[in-house]
């Protein structure tokens, strides 16, 4: 049975000074989700993606720090990785997650996110896993039905799957075609 994630002293409010300190003693800000959503809608996609990766990197560094570093996270089981990622997403108010394995493909399912922009959520997951593991990876949204499914793959793999989905191929067939080694 996996142990619970210790989130003690994760956020510290300095009410006399009116500041919020995060786990790494970095100041934070509490804003409504709708404001962030409105901000993301008015920003270009590349900027939106960069904002999501920066937010996800903050979450990933917290994950690695909690588990004792990236190698511990990599050597740990899927449950540890899933629990740690889910704890950080919950602490940021971005919902919860689950890890799915479709053959050799890793899919992260995000549920309960106040942000509807799937590409932004995918960018947050990409940044978090990249920062937690220290690997270069890419994520792309597969679907938004029953939560947001995000494929974790290499940059070329994520690009091909994104192209197939834009052509009308279902996300499940895209995963099968990706593991079969199909080209673009």
């Amino acid at each position: 049975m996996a142990s619970s994630v210790d989130l003690s002293n994760a956020v510290r409010f300095d009410l006399p000074n009116g500041t919020v300190h995060l786990s790494d003693n970095e100041k934070g800000l509490l804003v409504p989700a709708s404001v962030l959503a409105s901000l993301l809608k008015t920003t270009p996609p590349d900027v939106r993606g960069q904002i999501g990766r920066d937010l996800g990197a903050h979450l990933g560094r917290a994950m690695a720090r909690r588990v004792g570093g990236a190698p511990a996270l990599l050597d740990g089981g899927l449950e540890l990785a899933a629990s740690t990622l889910a704890a950080e997403l919950a602490l940021a108010g971005l919902g919860t997650c689950a890890l799915e394995r479709w053959g050799r493909a890793l899919v992260v399912q995000i549920t309960g996110s106040p942000i509807e922009e799937t590409d932004f959520v995918a960018s947050v997951v990409e940044g978090a896993l990249a920062a937690a593991t220290g690997r270069s990876l890419a994520c792309t949204a597969l679907s938004d039905a029953g939560g947001v499914r995000i494929l974790v793959a290499s940059e070329s793999g994520a690009l091909r799957v994104r192209g197939w989905i834009e052509q009308g191929v279902s996300w499940s067939d895209a995963l099968v075609r990706l593991q079969a080694g199909g080209g673009s």
Partner: peptide, 13 residues
């Protein structure tokens, strides 16, 4: 066996 193996497998796609 661990999260690292799955991550390596998915990155190989």
């Amino acid at each position: 066996r661990n999260f690292g193996d799955l991550l390596d497998a998915t990155l190989s796609l």
